[in-house]
Nucleic acid binder design. Structure first.
Lengths: 227, 227
DNA sequence: TGACTGTGACTGACCAGTCAGTCATAAATG
DNA sequence: CATTTATGACTGACTGGTCAGTCACAGTCA
């Protein structure tokens, strides 16, 4: 909360924009300003929802964090519920886009998957994105539309992509266990566990995710030969 | 404070007992009755918390479901929060006890783990218990004491037990990947994923958990030889 | 100036937690 | 054993506070 509570200075209204945003151009154009505000709201809402869960999050807090009046939120979203749903979409879509941009299949399948795992660690584990995954697990059952969306856009695509990779690995003789193609979930499971572990138990027992995923890949591809 | 003086007419007082309770033995003894009620409250609370999450659950609903007045809840629990915490303890402890009762190490390690997986499927996957695990993942960050308890009583023990089993498997030559003992999480990951999958995505894509876990064990122990 | 965007005080519903009162049962008494 | 008294488990109407959503007004831009 960097905002000085002393409302003192409503004079220069633009100051309401918080510091992070203050740096971007003032954005004279109305539509641009509106988009910026919307973005600030989404950002703030994500923080709050992750920290408190859907039901316990107060719109007043989101508004304050976004540097906006509560009413403004309702100019952009119908209500709290649809804000949550839209927010998940908004945040997830770019991640999906990024994952679809897999590097061309030059190296071995193991290298491909290792790269993928590296990205996953960097982009998801221990970031807001990871918390978002936990949030979806937490609220999914109460928001079928969110769960549906997440399944359609992330899970089913991820599973399909991973399956293709596994089949390639089997065809090339890198992977022995042929049945693995039936359950790509097994490939992804330790990564998901890592996400959950980090947000629940890291305090008690830190987990070397990188190393764990390496061991898991050794299990699937056989011990790695000298690099 | 002015209690309606002429409260009149709770003439048919005994009718307050509702039908659900009428069926169980009247339980003449006071302490027994109290224990029964407490149990009914815990049971009802678990259902409600699982269905709605902590913040969105109303104590009125718990009371109604338990066939009890709201005030009664406060005779057994300090407040909503400590009710949630105690409830998690109450429900989890017997499960832990049961898991500690591992069969004696007669067969192979693989058989041992397969038995364990079978029990897990039967006792956890697709049951209230599974939902409870999801609930802990969901609410854990907001209830550090619950997360701590769960780590101490379930996770750390589970990990330790699994590690011992893995080491045995390595010593006996059943398991090749020696590093697996450093990350027992890998062994458990698919089972956890199954729990989450069932409650979020089963509707979209049912998962044959039994088969998936078998494939995962094949990965670790090598293809199963004819039984 | 007129149209549009943003504001925040306000409202009404909702709900955790309280407590004065009830009553079945247990204990004490004759 | 029958009757009276004491106990405390249980009840549910009520309170105080919270918060999603509204709207009359203020500010801003073209």
């Amino acid at each position: 909360m960097t905002r000085k509570p002393t409302k003192a200075a409503p004079a220069h209204a633009k100051n309401r924009m918080h510091d992070a945003d203050a740096e971007v151009a003032p954005a004279s154009n109305r539509a641009t300003r509106a988009a910026e505000r919307r973005h600030a709201i989404v950002e703030a809402a994500m923080e709050e929802f992750i920290a408190r869960g859907f039901a316990a999050t107060r719109l007043d807090d989101i508004a304050k964090r976004a540097g906006v009046a509560k009413g403004t939120i309702y100019l952009h979203f119908k209500d709290k519920e649809s804000m949550f749903e839209e927010l998940v979409r908004t945040v997830i879509v770019p991640v999906v886009a990024r994952l679809n941009a897999l590097p061309p299949p030059t190296g071995s399948v193991r290298d491909l998957i290792e790269t993928f795992a590296g990205n996953f660690i960097k982009e998801v584990i221990g970031t807001r994105r990871g918390d978002l995954v936990r949030l979806i697990v937490a609220e999914g059952p109460r928001f079928p539309s969110v769960a549906d969306f997440y399944y359609r856009e992330v899970v089913s695509r991820g599973i399909a992509g991973m399956r293709a990779l596994i089949e390639l690995g089997i065809a090339r003789g890198e992977i022995r266990e042929k049945d693995l193609a039936r359950y790509p979930q097994i490939m992804i499971a330790p990564a998901m566990i890592a996400v959950i572990w980090q947000s629940l138990f890291a305090r008690h027992a830190p987990l070397d995710v990188q190393d764990m995923l390496r061991v898991h890949l050794d299990l699937i591809f056989g011990e790695r030969r000298a690099t």
